[in-house]
Design a protein around this nucleic acid. Structure first.
Lengths: 339, 339
DNA sequence: CGGAGTTACTAAACCGGTTTGATCGAAACA
DNA sequence: TGTTTCGATCAAACCGGTTTAGTAACTCCG
């Protein structure tokens, strides 16, 4: 019943008739071991079913072979966000190839700093991902202080010393506005995410710029919180105005908004056009199907993990470009009603 | 710039004028250290800002101080599922209190076994959570073979030797059926999840039992895959039949189904009643607002983590009861149209 | 006053790897 | 043939904790 203890490098050494050190060299493919011996050692290791102990390696080389991700969002908001699962799946894709693990930490917002400090203090991870960047994000300085390598998703406003995956939401928002303008809309509103989030404020900014670019007057902007409730409330306020289209900062708010519009007797898209952002699984299956901006968090995750591991391995890492988001046109957008 | 190396237990020992061993005893609150000395040591540790090295502790006590979660779902399905983020948040709640970390692994379905083996082989985790139980789940035997402690969410069909958090979906489904029956519905359909998933087949079974219990004839059941696309397709098939209500196995399919019904000109709830499962954030903000079953994955996560840690600490752990799910009645259910 | 038991502590081994410094034998060179 | 050089190998130290065995001093008891 009790399985035999796992073989250690010492057992392999004994079996191959060499010393521990030689085994270590052989297994790590380092020079100074004869081809003959190397093969004998590898065979012995295979026969014994030897696997390196991460614990021992971690201690001797002062590495954790793991990277961390701290999430300070409320669980409810997380639940509705399609970003994380895909992002994490992408991260894993890279990590598992390179023998690393992902340590996840979900904390209340008030304990965010403590979360990073715990991870660093206990030496649990060799680096972290920086998500949900905020304006004047205090985490940059914190990580610098902790001496913790990091890769951010999207480039922060102030140069951070950390490489970033150059996620840029602006082309997606711009495409949505252009699409609406092209359909003939002139009074377009925006339901924004919280301004203290970089992606919240940048999408808003992109919206404003795109309106100007299209030669349209500035439209109303309502700040919401990326939640369904927030999207619904914001929409209610906008329905009083005379806008003919609303660009939402994410799909969740857009879908909630869509329902509010319908309940208020506004036909979508005949009387009101609506666009989302994220292109969630559900976007194509609401009624009318939601025009949205497709992003690729899986790819971002892969790239971010590659960059982070390279950084940890001591390389200098440049910012990582990624393809721009694409507008997916569905049934929720149409020409505005003839005035 | 280069921060001073972190102090080790040796530095603390030196500062307090005692041996390493004594420091270890003092810090772990073990007997055999005078009150005087203990305080001196604690003070020294505090002054030096000492933090135990997880790496070193892990090696010497053969523990990882981490638990694992392997997800073999497709990223798209994960993205839409509100379960994980909440569950993980609950898990973290317990883990962080007890100084443990969560190692996440997202793998393609084909590599599920490899995922567990990697985690076990490298000694990354001391135990794992078992989610998305399947009928005849091979992971039970695998984990037994690996000697890896585990806690499952929901009780498997065959006794597994692992404790389970007794999540039971049946009362929720039963409540939905009773609610519909009480409204006067007699022909009720079910859109089920994949039958090889325990929660898929159990919800279906609960549906069938509840119909019988209510004295209603068996209704049509369509098996789908928990996705929006699947829910939409299943709904299309059911609209041809003469059912007046559909009980969905999750909210995502229900919301997609709702849209299909509307697009086919069936008024909800006037002509067709619809219920979901999960009570996602969005449920209350679609039109009509979705009657759904509220579950509590955050609590499950907390309980599961407690059980797992207790199990790892060598305790014998019983199955953990949790409160039954509650039906949340909203606007998507109403009496059937007068025939 | 001597032996047993207890308390507080130290020194050293240990966990399983990596890494350094020393050693040894054979080939290369003068 | 003696010396040098080099590749292959080994023994031992090290990472930073925990744990065990051993010891010195101190108390208790007859």
């Amino acid at each position: 019943m009790t399985r035999a203890d796992r073989p250690t490098i010492r057992d392999v050494a004994r079996a191959a008739g060499v010393s521990k050190g030689t085994v270590s060299f052989a297994l790590n493919g380092r020079p100074g071991v004869s081809e003959d011996t190397r093969e004998r050692i590898l065979a012995a290791a295979r026969d014994l079913g030897w696997t390196p102990s991460t614990k021992a390696r971690a201690l001797s080389v002062s590495r954790s072979f793991a990277v961390g991700l701290v999430l300070a969002r409320e669980p409810e908001l997380l639940g509705a966000d399609p970003f994380f699962p895909s992002f994490i799946a992408g991260v894993e894709r890279t990590l598992s190839d390179r023998g690393q693990a992902l340590v996840l930490q979900v904390v209340p917002e008030s304990e965010e700093e403590a979360g990073y400090r715990r991870l660093a203090g206990a030496g649990r991870v060799d680096g972290v991902f920086l998500l949900d960047l905020r304006v004047d994000d205090p985490r940059m300085a914190l990580l610098e202080e902790l001496g913790m390598p990091a890769v951010s998703i999207a480039r922060p406003d102030v140069p951070s010393g950390f490489p970033a995956v150059l996620v840029d939401d602006r082309p997606g928002i711009a495409a949505a506005v252009e699409h609406l303008a092209g359909l003939g809309h002139r009074r377009i509103a925006h339901v924004a995410g919280p301004a203290h989030f970089l992606h919240g404020s940048r999408r808003r900014r992109a919206f404003e710029d795109a309106l100007a670019e299209a030669g349209l007057p500035a439209g109303p902007v309502v700040e919401a919180d990326f939640s369904a409730a927030g999207g619904a409330a914001a929409t209610r306020r906008l329905l009083d105005s005379d806008v003919t289209a609303i660009v939402y900062s994410n799909d969740l708010m857009a879908i909630a908004g869509l329902s509010v519009a319908v309940e208020c007797g506004r036909a979508v898209p005949a009387e009101l056009s609506v666009t989302g952002f994220d292109n969630t699984d559900l976007a194509g299956y609401v009624s009318p199907a939601l025009t949205s901006v497709r992003t690729d968090p899986y790819l971002w995750g892969r790239k971010a993990a590659e960059a982070l591991l390279d950084l940890i391995d001591g390389g200098t890492v440049d910012d990582v470009p990624v393809p721009a988001a694409q507008l997916v046109i569905r049934a929720s957008t149409a020409p505005p009603p003839p005035q």
